[in-house]
Design a protein around this nucleic acid. Structure first.
Lengths: 99, 99
DNA sequence: ACAACTGTTACGTGACGGGTTACAATCGAC
DNA sequence: GTCGATTGTAACCCGTCACGTAACAGTTGT
């Protein structure tokens, strides 16, 4: 049930490590290519903000990868964070209750 | 590339049709069980709001399904909407450019 | 040394999900 | 039929968050 996996890596970190760094792309240059502000990109790769659908689309267009794959990373992280303090006041529907 | 699929169904609609309706669960009762306000649930099943990670977690706990499956529905829809007016000012990175 | 550029950080803004409260509609009991 | 209770939804306000603009400190090059 509670699989208790390790905290998934932030998509921004992956983007920086696996895309920008190998291509020697600066924040400024990358931001220009993606069509976003340097701030937006900086916050993203520094894990200050999460991956927005818009940003995922831009990355997919710029790199030729699927937007879904990037969104999936964010989703995994988002869910993991939410699970850290899971809601306690949830009552399972009758057909699922063990009692 | 642009697969141009049909608009994915809202997870709230699926939840209402496939869970609440078969179990004869009212909005009020379901909201109580999930531990959210009637408004939050009402807006969700009426496609006025998207599926939040918190809501996904509650649904997964209440129904015994995976939160990921619900989040995936929302993600598909979110991405589809974002793709409707895809950003035009994106420049592909050099190693991907055809020119 | 100084000018140009880098990456990051306040500041303000718009979008959005949630709770509380108020409202119209519907159902039940008598 | 009438009155009360319950239903689902809408109005209002608030907190959060991604974004752009502008300003900042640090580095590079000439």
């Amino acid at each position: 049930m509670t699989t208790m996996t390790r905290k998934p890596t932030h998509p921004g970190t992956v983007f920086y490590e696996d895309v920008m760094k190998p291509l020697n792309l600066s924040v400024t240059k990358t931001a220009e290519l993606l069509g976003v502000s340097r701030k937006a990109l900086s916050e993203f790769i520094n894990e200050k903000s999460s991956l927005s659908p818009d940003m995922a689309l831009r990355i997919s267009i710029a790199t030729g990868t699927s937007a879904e794959s990037w969104m999936n990373m964010q989703q995994k992280l988002t869910l993991w964070i939410a699970e850290q303090d899971a809601p306690s006041n949830v009552v399972p529907f009758s057909c699922y209750k063990a009692s």
